[in-house]
Design a binder for these strands. Structure first.
Length: 968
RNA sequence: GCUCGAGUGGUGGAACUGGUAGACACGUUGGACUUAAAAUCCAAUGGACAUUAGUCCGUGCGGGUUCAAGUCCCGCCUCGAGUACCA
């Protein structure tokens, strides 16, 4: 009886589903362990073999932890709001909910075939109103909060309101908009309700504000930076302009420092931490105020080099800076306006790509140096970004290369304030070696001391202060899309109001069209019913808006990251319709113990979700402020594309086999030869992707199948080698358009899910990216067959354990060498799982089974625990063998075997001995011999004596079990 | 440009704190069993000379530390990922 993986896998998958084998309880005496995957977006293309890599790794770990006696939470769900479903809807009119449902079904089928131990009772979908009710709920909590820098946490907005009533805002240390005026309690009370609300909005953790976005008028929507190529939209090639729009934003900047500090507490990959650190971009320096004489204006700038303040020879503002129109002199007006117009046309990307060209304009105004009181000309230039710092810089050309280049270009003086440094060719930016000169009270001071001194002086004169600036910006939270969470917001007199929590969720309305309306309103503007009836607390028809009891609703939807920022906590109590999760559930599960997912979310999801978690922590809703203790980034699995080479001979299309190209007098179009000028007019062969499913493991193309797929080559000539057409191979990203996609379904069908699981792990280290190559799977598949055989040694292939009652059939006493083999394996496998070295443990299994087979191991004492050991990796075959061994029920919670160190002790061990790194011989010594004893034996050894030739050894290096080294 | 990571056979990759480099697997070659193929099993497989027994060279390049370096230090080269006028 052979290894019939198909039958076994169907049987056990059905068993697990029927018996709810992997259901996690919120009530358990066992210790908890939470293993989380990043939930997938269910795309129409289905899964390819690259997708489940992380899921397999986390599944192995989850199953291992179950064997170790933990109550394991291992959930899965779908991040089902998103662009592709909406694009599809725009093209076909098909409702995104329908395509999403279809895709989820397909995903589920594919996932089930791989045999994951997910607790599907806890499935969540971000597009499900029962789920996004709580996304909307969190939004309301954020709206009702402000960030108090004194207590360093988020607090109720009502408290702020009370403080304003009592004493105004002079003593409030809050993270808020820059333009909040200082007011007293009496001034506050004199404000109208609307004015008060407008001020509170500047403090709320989610707020409405004008921000600059990439607007594509033709598409009628905002585009992200990566949706724009060379200044035009990626889709359609329409022009994109930068435009100010009123948008919802999240005040993530309030948490910048805590997001940085938190990184020290969590076990995440260093590169990922680095990229978050980078993204937050903390820099220390000072804010300096420059007055503009004879006006009420002052320009604050941020600088990391306040020590160079006496080197300031001009100021530069971002072209979009608010003050520019106000302070430009009439004589410069036309030039300045022309410049602003020309920069506004350039997209962010253009600006980035073209950093070499120096442009700018003098605006005619002068600021006053805070110390020397000398006039400083004010320029605008697009090397200064509106969104960073204050959008203005004090330009110190001797100390900053960009300022230097700008000064050179516009003939602005470059005063030197560094001692003993030549700045005739370039700026001098080495802070550590800086000694300041020509700088009044700073002369002779090194960088650090000078910085401190300047900040002291600035503060004394009210001209500035020490400041920490962050690169991180508040996150824009509005999208002009249909397929996302609606905001629980309506407007009275243009002011946003939260819908009462009791009326959530606010469900997405049906719309006629999924594109934004022509007036620029988001798709929800196309809904026939989409307004808020305050009295009756329900969504009603647009035509009835009277602004008295019926009010307009927010038409934007939330961005993709909204739904994924708290899903890990919702899994703990996913069916709770009273609370986002119960206190009991969150206090039991607390945090994710192991999170596995891709590094592409480093500065998106993984940052936003940490932000929300910290907010939830401040509100006392969660017990920990970092939700994932350990995180692992699995690498990408790339595809191995296949190419055919096409050319024309006369009028005939000719396809040339790879190794015949040279004989044919040609070369592939991307080869070195083809790029040389002499290649012109020579025989350059076009490379065309062939579907990898028509290519066998020896790179031979199945011509018949290929022609069926691409009938246009029916009449082509094939130039073969040895009767075969050999394709070219290249590693590329796995993608439909490259015809190199391998689906897990076909692998499961041909080799089984257990082979797929083992092979994905065997391919290489989890965190590395590596190419898929189906050919190699025969190795692990062969291993599973050997494993099966190990348990089936009878002459007719009957199960070996059936012979248990048959005298002489089964030896219950394993041989010492089998015990050694097996206990060695337990130790290694356990260590490997704990270190996430899944690839090497697969090798360990292979060695183990090979050795046990060679040793003719027939012992139940070994074969039983071996099945457990292997079950996290290959659960189906393990369950089947476990059953054949006479057990009922699932193997999944049977305790993991323990190794006995006694079996690992070797009685003697060969110790290689070397002298001066050259001469080597070995001694056989008992394993348990101590250091001194070994030394004595080594010295007494005849050969050692010869080698030492009468000299006394300086030292004997002993590493028990490893090596002995004698230094003569 | 900056930050991080990686360079080991024909290929994917092993090698724990420096301690017999190339585990395990793919591929290739030869053999067994077969009418044949598949499947299975056995053997060889870093390179060069010797082909019994051995010797020398080998972890991107050049130095260094050490009895001993893939591993540690210094200087380069190449590739990959992220980020980009951040004042």
């Amino acid at each position: 009886m052979g290894y019939d993986f198909g039958k076994i896998e169907v049987k056990w998958q059905k068993y697990w589903a029927e018996n709810q084998t992997f259901k996690a309880e919120n009530d358990s005496d066992k210790e908890k362990f939470y293993v989380l995957d990043m939930f997938p977006y269910p795309s129409g293309a289905g899964l390819h073999v690259g997708h489940p890599l992380g899921y397999i790794a986390s599944d192995i770990y989850a199953r291992y932890k179950r064997h170790k006696g933990f109550n394991v939470l291992h959930p899965q769900g779908y991040d089902s709001f998103g662009l592709p479903a909406e694009q599809y809807a725009i093209q076909t009119g098909q409702h995104p909910a329908i395509t999403t449902e279809t895709n989820i079904k397909r995903y589920r089928e594919q996932l089930d075939k791989i045999g994951f131990s997910f607790d599907w009772n806890r499935e969540v979908r971000t597009s499900d109103p029962k789920y996004y009710k709580w996304t909307q709920w969190i939004f309301i909590q954020l709206f009702n909060s402000w960030y108090n820098n004194d207590t360093d946490k988020a607090e109720e907005i009502n408290n702020l309101f009370k403080i304003f009533n009592k004493e105004g805002n002079a003593n409030v240390q809050a993270v808020c908009d820059d333009d909040v005026p200082v007011f007293s309690a009496s001034e506050w009370k004199r404000l109208s309700n609307i004015e008060q609300q407008q001020i509170l909005l500047k403090y709320r953790l989610t707020y409405l504000a004008e921000s600059e976005v990439n607007w594509c008028p033709a598409l009628g929507t905002v585009l992200a930076n990566d949706e724009i190529v060379n200044g035009v939209s990626e889709r359609g090639g329409y022009p994109v302009i930068r435009k100010k729009m009123t948008q919802w934003s999240m005040r993530i900047t309030a948490y910048a420092q805590r997001l940085l500090d938190g990184l020290d507490k969590i076990d995440w990959p260093q590169p990922l931490k680095d990229s978050q650190t980078n993204w937050i971009g903390r820099s220390e320096g000072a804010e300096v105020k420059f007055q503009i004489p004879n006006t009420k204006f002052e320009i604050p700038v941020f600088t990391t080099r306040p020590d160079t303040i006496f080197g300031t020879s001009f100021m530069t503002l971002a072209p979009e800076h608010d003050l520019v129109p106000k302070i430009t002199t009439p004589g410069q007006k036309s030039e300045v306006e022309a410049y602003i117009k020309s920069t506004a046309k350039r997209s962010e990307r253009d600006r980035m790509a073209d950093v070499k060209t120096i442009t700018g304009a003098f605006i005619g105004a002068y600021a006053e140096h805070p110390f020397t009181k000398e006039p400083i000309p004010i320029w605008i230039g697009d090397y200064v970004l509106a969104g960073y710092g204050t959008g203005a810089v004090m330009s110190v050309p001797c100390g900053d290369q960009r300022d230097y280049d700008f000064a050179k270009h516009f003939n602005i003086p470059i005063p030197n304030i560094f001692e003993g440094v030549d700045i005739s060719d370039e700026a001098y930016a080495n802070k550590e070696k800086t000694v300041i000169a020509n700088s009044d009270f700073l002369n002779g001071l090194p960088y650090k001391k000078a910085v401190r001194k300047v900040i002291d002086e600035l503060e004394k004169h009210g001209q500035g202060k020490g400041k920490i600036n962050y690169r991180l910006r508040d996150a824009v939270f509005s999208r002009q899309r249909y397929w996302g969470e609606p905001f629980p917001v309506y407007y009275i007199d243009g002011l946003p109001q939260m819908i009462d929590e009791n009326h959530l969720p606010i469900k997405l309305p049906e719309v006629a069209k999924y594109l934004p309306t022509e007036t620029g309103e988001p798709p929800l503007g196309n809904a026939t019913i989409w307004a808020w009836d305050l009295q009756n607390a329900k969504v009603v028809s647009c035509s009835m808006i009277d602004h008295k009891t019926i009010f307009p609703l927010e038409l934007n939807t939330m961005p993709g990251w909204a739904g994924s920022s708290q899903y890990f906590n919702r899994y703990m109590d996913p069916h709770n319709d009273q609370e986002i999760f119960s206190e009991k559930a969150i206090n039991y599960w607390r945090a994710v113990d192991l999170y596995i997912g891709g590094s592409e979310h480093a500065t998106g999801h993984l940052l936003y979700s940490r932000f929300w978690q910290k907010f939830m922590f401040d509100k006392g809703l969660v017990p920990v402020d970092e939700y994932a203790k350990k995180l692992i980034n699995q690498g990408m699995i790339t595809g191995t594309s296949a190419f055919i080479y096409r050319t024309k001979v006369g009028n005939r299309v000719t396809l040339v086999s790879k190794n015949k190209i040279k004989d044919f007098g040609g070369y592939p179009e991307d080869s070195n030869e083809a790029s040389k000028p002499e290649a012109k007019g020579k025989n350059v062969l076009q490379k065309i992707h062939a579907d990898v499913s028509f290519v066998n493991t020896s790179d031979e193309l199945d011509i018949a199948a290929f022609l069926k797929w691409q009938p246009e080559y029916k009449d082509a000539d094939f130039i073969l080698e040895n009767g075969k057409y050999i394709v070219g191979r290249e590693v590329e990203k796995m993608s439909k358009s490259k015809y190199n996609v391998v689906s897990p379904d076909s692998i499961c069908e041909d080799y089984g899910a257990d082979s797929l699981r083992l092979y994905e792990m065997f391919l290489g280290p989890l965190e590395q990216s590596k190419p898929w190559n189906t050919a190699g799977i025969t190795g692990v598949h062969g291993f599973l067959k050997k494993l099966w055989k190990l348990y089936h040694s009878g002459p007719n292939g009957e199960f070996k354990v059936d012979n248990l009652t048959n005298p002489g059939g089964i030896l219950n006493n394993p041989s010492p060498e089998s015990l050694k083999t097996f206990h060695k394996t337990i130790k290694k496998v356990e260590e490997d799982i704990e270190n996430f070295s899944f690839n090497t443990s697969v090798s360990t299994f292979m060695i183990c089974v090979n050795e046990l087979t060679a040793q003719k191991c027939q012992s139940r004492t070994i074969l039983e625990p071996l099945a457990i050991l292997i079950s996290p990796y290959a659960p189906h075959i393990a369950e089947e063998l476990w059953e054949k061994l006479g057990h009922s029920g699932s193997i999944s919670t049977i305790p993991f075997p323990k190794y006995n160190p006694e079996y690992l002790v070797e009685s003697t061990k060969e110790y290689p001995i070397s002298f001066n790194g050259k001469t080597r011989f070995t001694l056989e010594l008992p394993m348990d011999m101590g250091k001194d004893e070994i030394e004595a034996v080594v010295l007494a050894h005849e050969k050692t004596q010869q080698q030492l030739a009468g000299r006394t050894p300086k030292k004997v290096i002993v590493v028990p079990g490893k090596i002995v080294n004698v230094v003569g």
